[in-house]
Amino acid sequence: MADEAPENSTAKTIHGKPRRKRIHPPGVAPVETAATTIPVFDREEVERQVTLAWGFEPRLEEHLGPPPALGPEEGPRVDRLLSMLKDLRGSQRALLFGTPRLREALAQVHPACPSFAEVISLYERAAALSAMTGAPVSVPPVLLLGDPGIGKTHASKAIAAALGVDIHAFSCATSSDAQALLVGHPPTWRGARPGVLTEAMIASASAQPCVLLDEVDKFMTHPTEQPYAVLLSALEPENARAMRDEYLQVPFNVAKAFFILTANDAGQIPGFIMDRVLAFQIAPPSGDALVVIARNIVGDVVASLRGGVSMPEDVVLHRLARSNPRGIKKLVRLAYGFAAAAGRGRLELVDIDAAEAVATGTSKPARIGFLTTENGPLSM
């Protein structure tokens, strides 16, 4: 007789082969293991759109001959649809699941982004819940609020890197067309193209890329447009499961994506958007946290300079820490330039002072070719 399987380990058989159950903590009901991929667009609708344009199904092309010539509006659209059909990946993209490695990677973000501990912990808990249940990692849309230059974009990219997913960053402050950013325009519009977000979903290796909408409180659009109404279609789960690209006329599933929004002023964001995000007020880093950030930034610069310079002493790092993270980034390379001009590979306080003078526009170049008198410069 066959050996009995250990308790809580043997499951029903599939095609005659035993399947392993996930072992759950006491009191937690077992669930079926989730699928590892999902379709991010409707492939049948892609085929239907090509069929409508050609008059016959794409699979019949080899029997019926070349498709009809299409106009300048429809031709590029059908070409884009065909490229989706020919993609060897099909419409399926991978889901993300909690693992010890993922949780360790997220834990490593804390030292690099000390001001974002609460935000990082949100993703750590989501990974822990995924590991326990077998469901994909799921996090509601997140809004990072705080002063300019405190590292909101940097932290977002660090979280995406720890998750191991692509990040697609869009600046809302420089976008003049919210609809083009998310869902595109109908093909009859001049210069129409797919939405930047849906293009990102096609290109991504994951069904759960990180979508970073930077400075969402500064949407620059035509006064008659309602950019946040378009954004709502991506943030509302029911709509996000079948968000229709207006150009391709194909539904996309963006419901599993990790949305991170950044803003300086929550007062500029409509209430119906605020209701759909988890908002975190990020305090400016100070004290030891800012020194840690300064050390991380300088370390990245030193690495990029191929070992030709060295890390500065703590007194220099503390001097740099008077600035916010964006200011530190601006100063460091300038300061190393002053050090190099003096024949040194290590920063000194004088280099930081000189760099700050350049960055703030307070440096005064010496006059050349003039004598100064009480009445002003005298030409030689």
Results as ranks from 00 to 15, higher is better:
residue 349 L to Y: 14
residue 60 L to K: 15
residue 149 G to Q: 09
residue 334 L to G: 00
residue 161 A to I: 02
residue 44 E to D: 08
residue 158 A to R: 15
residue 315 V to G: 07
residue 249 Q to P: 11
residue 341 A to V: 11
residue 236 E to G: 04
residue 119 V to Y: 04
residue 134 G to F: 00
residue 256 K to R: 11
residue 198 T to C: 05
residue 221 T to N: 09
residue 41 F to L: 05
residue 362 T to M: 04
residue 135 A to L: 15
residue 163 L to M: 06
residue 238 E to P: 03
residue 58 P to E: 06
residue 204 S to E: 00
residue 351 D to K: 08
residue 85 L to H: 03
residue 223 P to A: 05
residue 27 G to H: 05
residue 379 S to G: 04
residue 242 A to Q: 14
residue 304 S to Y: 08
residue 318 H to N: 12
residue 26 P to K: 10
residue 123 Y to S: 03
residue 59 R to I: 04
residue 24 H to A: 14
residue 206 S to V: 02
residue 230 V to F: 05
residue 355 A to G: 01
residue 111 P to Q: 11
residue 76 P to K: 06
residue 341 A to F: 14
residue 41 F to I: 04
residue 298 V to D: 04
residue 119 V to T: 06
residue 119 V to G: 05
residue 14 I to V: 13
residue 41 F to M: 04
residue 67 P to L: 08
residue 308 G to N: 12
residue 98 G to H: 00
residue 139 V to D: 06
residue 43 R to N: 09
residue 139 V to M: 04
residue 96 L to V: 07
residue 89 R to P: 06
residue 183 V to I: 13
residue 101 R to V: 10
residue 219 F to D: 05
residue 150 I to L: 10
residue 220 M to E: 14
residue 226 Q to T: 12
residue 183 V to S: 11
residue 195 G to C: 02
residue 365 P to G: 04
residue 82 L to Q: 07
residue 185 H to Y: 05
residue 159 I to T: 01
residue 310 S to Y: 10
residue 39 P to G: 01
residue 355 A to Y: 00
residue 89 R to G: 12
residue 40 V to G: 01
residue 184 G to V: 05
residue 258 F to C: 03
residue 297 I to S: 01
residue 18 P to E: 10
residue 62 E to F: 11
residue 131 A to D: 06
residue 7 E to R: 12
residue 17 K to A: 14
residue 101 R to K: 11
residue 202 I to N: 09
residue 8 N to H: 09
residue 12 K to H: 10
residue 27 G to D: 09
residue 187 P to M: 03
residue 146 G to Y: 11
residue 188 T to V: 12
residue 46 V to H: 02
residue 23 I to R: 06
residue 219 F to N: 07
residue 46 V to N: 07
residue 83 S to N: 12
residue 287 G to Y: 09
residue 125 R to G: 03
residue 92 Q to S: 12
residue 184 G to Y: 01
residue 206 S to K: 02
residue 49 Q to N: 10
residue 261 L to T: 01
residue 182 L to G: 02
residue 255 A to C: 15
residue 263 A to V: 11
